[in-house]
């Protein structure tokens, strides 16, 4: 069976130097691109299963690469970005990137993101009626949430929020994406809703609400549902 191909787009040779062996060790085939144009061409010719994209490229903005790729492919894209550039990350995610990793990053963290993105991509094609999130079972058609065998009462909005997060389990979703989906486009800036509703969900679902594991905050960017 063929190994999943990962295209690493970065202009720093040092990054490629440690990425390639790490990817290979994790069972991937590593492809390499050093600028935006090359990245687009490689994606078209080699059809990688996933793209790791650094946003700072010599020839074009990384966000432009996402915009161009999204014109014709839904290959998962994981973005590499500096920690203090939240705005850039959010933009990249809203443009269609699947996840991000702060630079500098640990290899374990990156591999977890890759796995989540690949899994989500595979699942997106098959819509299942029941979602699982750790000990939580979410029955979409019946609007029921069961935790350790006992039903948890959720308001309709809480349920919508939980369902949306669970559908993207393992992946980050931006505030805007959640708000659009759950409350509608008119409320895409009302992040205070999220704070309150996430708080309520955690209180009802988390084993330790002050130390959440099911719904994790990505400060300044959005939320990520744990797996």
């Amino acid at each position: 069976m063929q190994l999943p191909r990962v295209l690493v787009v970065d202009d720093e040779p040092a990054i490629h130097r440690f990425m390639a062996p790490a990817l290979v060790a994790n069972g991937y085939e590593a492809l390499k691109a050093e600028n935006g144009a090359e990245a687009i061409a490689m994606t078209a010719s080699r059809r990688p299963e996933i793209v790791i994209l650094d946003l700072g490229l010599p020839d074009m903005d990384g966000k432009e690469v996402i915009r161009r790729l999204r014109g014709w492919t839904d290959t998962p894209i994981v973005v590499l970005s500096a920690r203090d550039r939240d705005a850039e990350k959010i933009e990249a995610l809203d443009l269609g990137a699947d996840d991000f990793v702060n630079k500098p990053f640990s290899m374990g963290e990156l591999m977890a993101r890759l796995r989540a993105a690949l899994r989500h991509h595979a699942r997106a094609t098959v819509e299942t009626p029941v979602l699982r999130l750790g000990p939580i079972e979410i029955d979409l058609p019946r609007h029921r949430v069961v935790r350790d065998g006992a039903e948890v009462k959720l308001t309709p909005k809480e349920f919508d929020l939980l369902a949306f997060l669970a559908r993207h389990a393992g992946r980050v979703v931006t505030h805007r994406q959640i708000l659009r989906e759950v409350w509608g486009p008119a409320h895409e800036h009302d992040t205070q809703y999220l704070r309150v509703y996430v708080g309520q969900l955690r209180a009802k679902l988390e084993a330790d609400p002050v130390n959440p594991k099911l719904i994790v905050t990505e400060p300044g960017v959005g939320y990520r549902a744990g797996e």
Partner: peptide, 8 residues
């Protein structure tokens, strides 16, 4: 928070 509970 008025808009948050619409359709609740």
């Amino acid at each position: 928070m008025t808009g948050a509970r619409q359709m609740e």
